[in-house]
Design a protein around this nucleic acid. Structure first.
Lengths: 150, 150
DNA sequence: CGTTGGCGGTCTCCAATATAGACCAGGTCT
DNA sequence: AGACCTGGTCTATATTGGAGACCGCCAACG
């Protein structure tokens, strides 16, 4: 299971490639997350933060939501970070922002197919975290104890 | 598939619970990632950053690695962030740090079972990102174009 | 009629964090 | 001797995050 990636990874130890140099077959393959210059790294860096992931999970779990629903749903997120994360998700084509021209206007955010795909991969990570949180907290206490007295 | 979570999520809209008040059945269930005070949130916040995730993926893909192998493998990570992320992963029981008392000493990092579980959930996210990076970059250009002229 | 509240944000300020780079002790290579 | 590798730590600076004020607009409350 891990072996395939291990093989390819050991083979080309993340040397400074960034994107295939082929002029036209480019966009499909050859992105390497481990290369600091690779565009996929930039994309990854924006998605891999707690707020973006929580927002995706909330949209997947609760369906389309308004700005303030999301703010209440994702406990502790500031309006600034919520706006910023939503803009990123929208910009990358993961989330759709719709303004209903009522009075007062309503703004609703929903997952686009791309966002739904990611949310379906990320949700299990969230569930795993909830499930294993106890073990990790225990490990931390043990570690801290060992390194306080030690 | 999403329906179950949707149900539970809509039902209790992330009200300020943090941990079940039951005195003994605590550590197993009742963690809620969406509650700002929940310990699982704290755990999640530390794991959900690009360096920790890339390190986990690298360890899963390439097996046990030394400090400097990891630094070369995870392109662009600074020694400081690498140390810090590894300490976190070690502290939470995801990664094992072993010092071989040779001269010069060798330090090797490897996944513990808990870390392997997480790595196996996270690796698909990384692969998905590599696979979809092209689409997301295209979406960004489109978005930027629309919002520059507009 | 003033006030309070919700809506969907933006703006500003300050504290915390990330990154770059120097430094360190020990050992190897040339 | 001088340069380099190892696994880090320390410092200085750039970037970021969160708290909270502000905005126009509207509805309800007293």
């Amino acid at each position: 299971m891990t072996t395939e990636e291990a093989t390819r990874a050991r083979a080309g130890q993340h040397e400074e490639q960034q994107v295939p140099d082929g002029p036209e077959g480019a966009a499909e393959q050859g992105f390497d997350l481990f290369a600091r210059l690779c565009p996929s790294r930039e994309v990854f860096a924006e998605l891999a933060d707690k707020w973006s992931l929580l927002i995706l999970m909330s949209l997947a779990a609760c369906g389309p939501q308004r700005f303030s629903e999301l703010q209440r749903g994702v406990g502790g997120v500031s309006r600034k970070m919520l706006t910023q994360s939503l803009r990123n998700l929208e910009r990358s084509g993961l989330v759709l922002r719709t303004v209903f021209p009522e009075t007062p206007p309503r703004v609703v955010y929903d997952l686009l197919p791309l966002g739904r795909e990611l949310a379906e991969l990320v949700t299990p990570v969230g569930q795993w975290t909830e499930h294993r949180a106890g073990q990790m907290m225990a490990a931390r206490e043990e570690f801290d104890a060992a390194h306080t007295e030690g």
